[in-house]
């Protein structure tokens, strides 16, 4: 036998697990996608959906508002330091408005939700697996992937854009608080300046980012839960993995989305 071929085979054997790591998430996504038609036919359990809407929307709102408000304030203070050198503090309104609506709003909400929902999903699914609840679902003839993922996914797809809108508003409000109190810009002037710098397309494109982010957080969370090792440490590691991979995926997706938007001129 050709030693070169043998070596190649050895190498390919070593890389097979790696390749499987790459294909398994795809398989997971495929399983879920395959269930979409039956979801559309049969719907999902309303109670589960309501529970996750409550968890990912209502309960996450205060922390999202707080963090976005603070981020808006931080940006305004930093903008003030720079722009006051030119005597152009009013442009803080532009800076905060644009950055919050375009980038920081959707991104901060995604980060908060990664910690809030993504890790919870992973831990929940991981525990269900540990507790044989997943097996139980399976032997009832119910597909655990779709049964567990769809309510979470729907809730996230609904609540993330709403949270992002709230987050945008809170960020602008934070900037305005600093603008009005520390820079003594009249609120009306700040408001006019903010409206001046933004337009509907920017706002919509910014808020639209939350949809792929929601998808990524949910899928990463559930995937890490389903693939967590069958012990309590495994569940913990699954949650960590969910958070880390979500953040990574969100940032990568944001890069792609920004490039995509740049093609259409935004």
């Amino acid at each position: 036998m050709n030693p070169g071929v043998e070596q190649l085979k050895a190498i390919s054997r070593r890389f097979r697990p790696l390749l499987q790591d790459g294909t398994r998430p795809l398989e997971f996504i495929g399983r879920i996608a395959a269930e979409v038609p039956s979801l559309l036919r049969n719907g999902m359990r309303k109670r589960d959906l309501r529970y996750y809407l409550d968890l990912c929307g209502v309960q996450a709102l205060p922390i999202v508002l707080l963090i976005c408000l603070l981020m808006g304030m931080v940006m305004a203070v930093n903008g003030q330091i720079q722009l006051s050198k030119l005597g152009q503090e009013i442009f803080v309104a532009d800076a905060v408005g644009l950055v919050v609506v375009k980038e920081l709003g959707p991104l901060m909400v995604a980060m908060v939700m990664t910690g809030w929902a993504g890790s919870a999903f992973a831990a929940e699914v991981g525990t269900m697996k540990l507790d044989e609840q997943i097996s139980a679902l399976e032997t009832m003839g119910i597909r655990p992937e779709s049964f567990l993922v769809f309510p979470k996914l729907t809730a996230m797809l609904v609540s993330m854009p709403i949270l992002t809108i709230f987050g945008d508003a809170a960020g602008i409000l934070g900037g305005m608080l600093i603008g009005v109190t520390s820079m003594r810009i009249p609120p009306v002037a700040y408001w006019t300046r903010t409206l001046e710098s933004l337009d509907v397309t920017t706002f919509l494109l910014g808020a639209a980012k939350s949809v792929p982010f929601a998808l990524l957080i949910t899928l990463a969370g559930c995937y890490c839960g389903f693939n967590a090792a069958n012990n309590s440490q495994g569940v913990g590691r699954g949650a960590t993995k969910a958070v880390v991979s979500s953040i990574f995926l969100i940032v990568v997706a944001d890069v792609f989305i920004t490039i995509l938007y740049s093609f259409i001129g935004y």
Partner: peptide, 25 residues
């Protein structure tokens, strides 16, 4: 819980429409 959920969704939609309106819809 339902009331809060309703408030959340309605609030979000109201805010969305308000922003669209202000931004030149």
């Amino acid at each position: 819980q339902k009331i809060k959920l309703g408030l959340f969704v309605t609030g979000g939609i109201v805010l969305f429409v308000a922003i669209l309106f202000f931004l030149g819809m």
